[in-house]
């Protein structure tokens, strides 16, 4: 097996709130091969974004990374100084955010914003940065990049801004791209274009991609591997085929049952998962999902399930696995 480019082990990011400790991310582990596409899926508030922000150490108080290791190549990102971390951000690990409308600085032209990173990280001169920025804009499908270089963010539509943000994120040819729900704020027709662009870019740069989404259709078309999160914990982790065809965890099964699939053989209705997601503030002991789980056992009340390997790289955190036999 190839050496993973990123290895996250036992990551815990907690937020100290007045109501108690919000365990936004509570023990997430995964590894990322150099050209792998990992999709992190889960409901809103399940800790997907916090996981991504933790990798780049963008967590602000009251949040803290309380435990875990994040290894990028041979570096422990959590042990780096802030200055060293700044050199990684935007250079070796690029990030694309959810809302392209507000993720660009409104008072500078998009050309200046892309050139900024190039001059900072690659030590390019102004003129080199400019021509490279124009090339980048062209490569993400911005028409007439020479002229658009001088335009302000408000001159662009949402989809075009997301292209600009992708151009900025890949400017230094990062090893890892993190895209945090990059299509959520966009029109459905634009979503497909942006996802295709992301897939193209990932292939061209031969970089790893962490794609955060709650759209299972996106997962099916993009992912190599899938990490399912619930209430800050890893529920299931495996390659995309396994997760879609043979999900083991009751939550993953619930997710799969709640979406329409073109290859659906079933005649019955779509089913939703009953109840609402647990907000992990001072969570009770036991499995976070048990109150919504139809197959909950006695042991689920008292003991937190640990990830166990089903076969090979397929990990499931559920007591039913140990009982032997899928629900």
């Amino acid at each position: 097996m190839v050496e993973p480019i990123l290895k996250v082990e036992g990551l815990k990011t907690h937020f100290k709130l007045r109501e108690g400790m919000l365990k936004a991310v509570d023990g997430i582990s995964f590894s990322l091969a150099p050209d792998e596409v990992l999709c992190i899926v889960g409901e809103s508030g399940s800790g997907k974004s916090v996981t991504a922000q933790s990798i780049l150490r963008l967590i602000d108080p009251p949040g803290h990374i309380v435990e875990g290791h994040i290894r990028y190549r041979d570096k422990d990102l959590l042990a780096l100084s802030e200055r060293e971390m700044e050199k990684i951000r935007g250079d070796r690990i690029g990030m694309i955010f959810q809302d392209p409308m507000t993720s660009l600085n409104p008072v500078f032209t998009i050309g200046e914003q892309i050139s900024e990173g190039l001059r900072e990280h690659l030590d390019l001169k102004k003129n080199e940065a400019k021509s490279r920025a124009i090339e980048l804009l062209r490569s993400v499908g911005i028409p007439h990049p020479e002229e658009r270089y001088r335009d302000y963010p408000h001159h662009f539509s949402g989809g075009m801004r997301q292209r600009v943000l992708i151009a900025a994120a890949i400017a230094c040819e990062p090893d890892i791209l993190i895209a945090d729900e990059p299509t959520t704020a966009l029109d459905v027709t634009i979503q497909a274009q942006i996802l295709k662009l992301l897939a193209d870019v990932q292939k061209r740069l031969n970089s790893a991609l962490i794609l955060i989404t709650h759209d299972l259709g996106v997962v099916a078309s993009m992912a190599d591997r899938v990490l399912v999160m619930y209430a800050g914990e890893m529920v299931e982790y495996g390659d995309v085929k396994t997760i879609f065809e043979d999900p083991k965890h009751p939550y993953t099964i619930g997710l799969m049952n709640s979406v329409i699939r073109l290859d659906d053989q079933r005649d019955d209705e779509l089913r939703s998962i009953r109840g609402t997601p647990l907000v992990p503030i001072n969570p009770p002991p036991g499995c976070s999902f048990r109150s919504r789980c139809d197959a909950a056992l006695g042991v689920c009340e008292s003991e937190k399930p640990r990830p166990s390997s089903v076969d090979g790289g397929h990990l499931v955190s559920c007591h039913l696995m140990r009982q032997g036999g899928a629900p």
Binding site: E86, M95, F97, Q98, S103, L104, N105, G117, E120, A168
Partner: peptide
Amino acid sequence: QPYIEAARAGGAGDAAIILR
């Protein structure tokens, strides 16, 4: 504003964020 977090994710330090 989200563009501040985006700037940090792009590697900008405090000085750059304040000035730019």
